[in-house]
Amino acid sequence: MSNIGLAFALFGAAFAVVFAGIGSAKGVGLVGQASAGALSEDPSLFGKVLILQLLPGTQGLYGFIIAIFVLINTGVLGGAPEAGLAWQKGLMYLASCLPIAFGGLLSGIHQGKVAAAGVSLVAKKPDQSGRAITMASLVEFYAILPFLISFLAVSSIKGIAI
């Protein structure tokens, strides 16, 4: 049972990567389908459409970074795993990962929807790509906020004395 803390922490890392990753995968997938449709009409839009497609990809990245930080702080990556990681601390890591896990999941999907609608806007009016990008990036902010909270929380757990 001495590893239970580490197990909790790894659960947290897995949550962050998996859920934020699902959000991004769904989002990027949605925009990809819309993009393929738009490109069949006008292949020259590729550059503009590509930016829109990549936008919902950042959630996965945020989840990935949080997971990396958990792995580094618990010593799984680059060093010896902290075998005696207290279960309380493990749970703290798990809790810290939840914001980006679920924030990333939902904001990724919704950003994908907005960006996909943006693709159809760009297909009709290519000069509006700036606005389409701005609209999609408004959703992004709600992935950045959970990311920051997860990040601040994960980076401060090591210093807590139990």
């Binding site: 590509l50 930016i51 990549l54 990809g57 700036g130 990008i133 701005t134 408004l138 992004e140």
Partner: peptide
């Protein structure tokens, strides 16, 4: 990845 992300987010800070 980060060029695109940075470009988009700087644009957003300017626009919004």
């Amino acid at each position: 990845i980060n060029l695109i992300g940075t470009y988009v987010h700087t644009c957003r800070l300017q626009f919004v």
